[in-house]
């Protein structure tokens, strides 16, 4: 089916990947049902809970905390919807099959999906940071602004793996429902909408199964507001969860190819 890409150089691969990213991004942008909620949802939440509700309060803990969690939330949406729904759609409409007949390597396709999520994430981060810094009064050390942005953007990778696993298995219509369910449940139960410490103890323990929880803690860690678990704990579980998602996705693709 696929062309032997091994004889092409690295630059060729990169060009293909970047081009695919470009088109992927443009096509996502032209899909207002995807782009608008993805961009506005976290900003809207942050504006209400961190700016309006906390205006003039004695502490910046809330606005600062929510900056990290809504930042992660802002990357979660494009990653999980882009892969979960987008992939299922392309597969069921045959678009994916068409793409696989072209010489484009699979890696470029995946790169483009993650890249698109990261670009959307970057836009959300930028607007969220501006809102936090200039409307909510959040102050971070320069290094913290950068490291928080870095962690939040890196979240696109593990979240995409979750989306990939869903998209590889669910049918187009079912994918929207499944992704929405995972999206909302994981956001709430991982403490992205409100602090994890507000959840009952057993749910706080249960949160460990979600990549969003660990990414939230890693983001909060850059601004000293995490629960104090060691770094390796979050990184190890995150790596494990991502590997499981990729394995699940790979199994789904094999099933698809075998049909």
């Amino acid at each position: 089916m696929t062309v032997d890409t091994a004889r092409h150089g690295l630059l060729w691969h990169l060009r293909i990947a970047l081009l695919e990213t470009r088109f992927q991004f443009l096509s996502s942008l032209r899909l207002p049902a995807f782009a608008v909620p993805t961009l506005l949802f976290p900003l809207f939440f942050y504006f209400f809970f961190a700016v309006l509700f906390q205006a003039g309060g004695p502490s910046l803990t809330g606005p600062t905390y929510m900056l990290a969690t809504y930042g992660v939330f802002g990357v979660l949406a494009p990653s999980i919807f882009g892969f979960g729904v987008g992939l299922a759609q392309e597969r069921d409409t045959g678009a994916l099959l068409l793409k696989r007949t072209t010489p484009m390597p699979t890696a470029a396709y995946l790169f483009a999906r993650v890249g698109t999520a990261a670009i959307f994430g970057a836009v959300v981060v930028l607007l969220l940071f501006l809102l936090a810094g200039f409307a909510a009064g959040v102050e971070l050390h320069r290094g913290q602004w950068f490291s928080l942005a870095g962690v939040v953007l890196a979240a696109a990778l593990p979240f995409s793996a979750v989306g990939l696993a869903i998209g590889a298995w669910a049918k187009q219509q079912a994918a929207v429902a499944v992704v929405n369910l995972v999206f909302i449940a994981m956001s709430v139960l991982s403490g992205l909408w409100f602090p994890i410490s507000m959840l009952p103890g057993f749910l706080q323990d249960f949160a460990n199964v979600f990549p969003a929880y660990h990414l939230g803690q890693l983001a909060l860690r850059t601004i000293d507001l995490d629960l104090g678990r060691p770094l390796w704990f979050h990184l190890a579980l995150l790596a494990g969860q991502t590997a499981v998602c990729l394995a699940v996705a790979a199994a789904g693709f094999r099933r698809f190819s075998g049909r």
Binding site: G133, F134, L140
Partner: peptide
């Protein structure tokens, strides 16, 4: 933008 965001006193 990251360079102009406010930092603590």
């Amino acid at each position: 933008v990251l360079m102009v965001l406010p930092v603590p006193e």
